[in-house]
Amino acid sequence: MRPFEYVSPNSRSQAIGLLGATWGNIEILAGGTDLLTLMKDDVVTPKRLVNIKDIADLRGISFDAQGLRVGALTSLGELADNENVRKNYPALSEALLEAASPQIRNMATIGGNLCQRPRCWYFRNGLGLLPKDENGKELVAGGENRYHAILGNQGAAKFVSPSTVAPILIAYGAKIRLEGHKGKRELPLEKFFVIPKTENDREHDLRPNEIVTELVVPPASDLKAAHYEIRQKEVFDWPLAVAAVTLKLQGTNVQSSKIVLGYAAPVPWPCPEAERALSGKPVNKETAQKAADAALGKATPLSHNAYKVKLAKVAVTRAILKAAGGAA
């Protein structure tokens, strides 16, 4: 086993003090459901693990007129089963229940879910986040890319963002709160995800010396929402497409909407084109399909994943119809 230092602070400031200025040597341990696997497979090789599970004020769920606040260490299972979440954010609860098996849901944290590393099989085989062979040739574009990105894939990053929960959180307008050396900051969750340009970048805007502290989700009582996943297997399978939709209706027509794709791009992929297409329209199969076509209008599939464009369209169509209360 590669030796590493294990530190277990019990306050945010202690934890932040134990983090470093660059990625690679230090990793943050929360639920560990992803990190420990990556370490066992020698994909990441930290010199220090900072266990944040003993920091009490990173836990807890509260709900009031300002909306939902979720501590970063809240487990997926606890959040899915929370009465306020089930009642006020049912699509989030559903996404959480579909995200993993019960055992994983009880260990994995919501902060960790958003920070988990890509499932790209080149990355998981140790060939890098932006996989290259020994001569520097990119591997994904001409390789086995059936599960890779169909949007936002023009750079070297061709993996898909692995969180199935992020799209619906973004659709609900969630914000993420971070804390680091320079203090606290809050940003819209969709801005948290970034497409890495170099092998040393990460897939999110978390700085190496910051931790995720909290998620804030605004009230959603006026929204209709849906999460829709297409998986080949019923359970224990990564999706081929994810779509999350929130709709604000005026009468029978859509006043505004938020449509976000998962498993389509290196980041959760908001679809303003689809939102515009749907704006002012009644929700039916035809308008939903038009919105889906708009969402994928700029898709750039790779050599083996054109089918994912079709799947993403189906996911968007079905999510819109499901949100509006029709059959998916």
Binding site: N125, L139, E144, E234
Partner: peptide
């Protein structure tokens, strides 16, 4: 699933070597 460029098996695990559940 074999990667043509590196000659390696890409799904030598239980997440991408799928078995019926």
């Amino acid at each position: 699933v074999m990667d043509q460029a590196t000659g390696r098996m890409l799904n030598a695990d239980m997440q991408f070597y799928r078995l019926a559940g």
